[in-house]
Simulated scan of single mutants.
Amino acid sequence: MEIISALTVYTEGNTYHSLNFKDQEGNWYNKTSNEMVKFTPDIAGDRVDRTKLCPEYKGYKMASGSVEGKHVKTPISDYYALDNSYVVTMRNEIEAYEKLGSGHPNICKYHGCQVEDNLVTGIVLDEYSEPLEDAVIDSPQRLVEQLEDAVRYIHSVGVVHGDINPKNIMVHDGNLFLIDFDSCGADNPKCGSEGYMSPNYAKTEADDWYAVGKVKEFVMKSARSNDEPRGDRPQQGTAESAA
């Protein structure tokens, strides 16, 4: 058995831990549990119909060479296959990256797709280790300007991100990178994140700009917190730090 992907899903007050894996013949399986699932060579699970997880390959850029040091985004759980929404989610993300190409330095670099049996089984992207929400922000205005420039670019090629928030923005060597275009498309049930969605959210350019404004607030607040003398910061465990 070979692991494909792992995911923890939070929905309606419940938590599901899910693993996708495949056997030597290339058949896919899924194991989902309320408890953390440990992957072992003899793991057993339910057979998965890949057509309910993987979009059809339609001439997209093919990834070549080694994927070492890169992030391979794979179909993640048959939880999404209940309404085939993950096929739409993954297809729309691929098509967004195809439009974006390598035209902007602050957008996650796309290397192409992995394909098996005319199905896209992975999206190969650059790897970034630090999300904006965890980063120590030294140059807040520069990061905000990079985000604004990236958003102007994606809109110029007809892409609306739909879920701009500090988890979908990475920081590397002091630069910002916009990632996760899996909320793109009006036919995509995946939407924005709480606290970053406009009151009348409808996946428009205006919704992206509303989210940019919220990210700017987050960045500026985080930068001010970094500048505070250590003795002035709330200590872990206080009501202020837990809020």
Score class of each variant (00 low, 15 high):
A135C: 11
C108T: 12
N34C: 00
Y210F: 14
A150E: 09
I179V: 15
A186K: 14
C184W: 03
E133F: 08
K216C: 12
Y57Q: 00
F181H: 05
K109F: 03
V219D: 04
N106G: 10
A96M: 03
S156N: 01
D134E: 14
E217H: 11
A6G: 13
M170G: 07
P166F: 11
H17K: 06
T204G: 02
Y57W: 10
C113T: 14
T32G: 01
G26W: 05
S85R: 14
P75W: 10
L53P: 10
R50P: 11
S129A: 09
V136N: 12
S139T: 05
Y79N: 07
K190I: 14
N84M: 12
D23C: 03
D173M: 07
Q114T: 13
E25K: 13
D207H: 07
G237F: 07
V124T: 04
S222P: 01
A243K: 05
V72R: 08
E205Q: 13
N20Y: 15
V88R: 04
C108N: 14
R152S: 10
E133S: 09
M197C: 14
F218P: 04
I76T: 09
I3K: 15
I4R: 11
V72N: 08
P234E: 00
M62A: 01
G237R: 06
S139P: 00
E25C: 00
R50H: 00
G237I: 07
Y196I: 07
S66W: 00
K70E: 01
E145L: 06
Y201Q: 01
A206P: 02
A202T: 02
D46C: 01
L19V: 06
E240I: 13
Y16R: 08
E127T: 10
W28T: 09
K214M: 14
N188R: 08
G185I: 13
I179T: 14
G103N: 15
I94H: 00
V219S: 06
L53R: 06
E133C: 06
K203G: 04
N84Y: 12
A96L: 02
F39E: 10
P199E: 05
Y10M: 12
Q236L: 09
G45H: 12
T32P: 01
V159E: 08
D149A: 13
C108F: 00
G69N: 05
S241D: 09
T11H: 08
T74Y: 09
D23W: 06
K31Y: 10
M62P: 00
K99M: 03
V212D: 10
V124F: 02
A96D: 04
V48W: 09
G158E: 03
I164Y: 11
N84K: 12
K221R: 14
A186F: 06
E194F: 07
S33Y: 02
M90N: 08
M197N: 04
N27R: 13
N30D: 15
H172S: 13
G231F: 14
D227Q: 15
Q114V: 13
I107S: 10
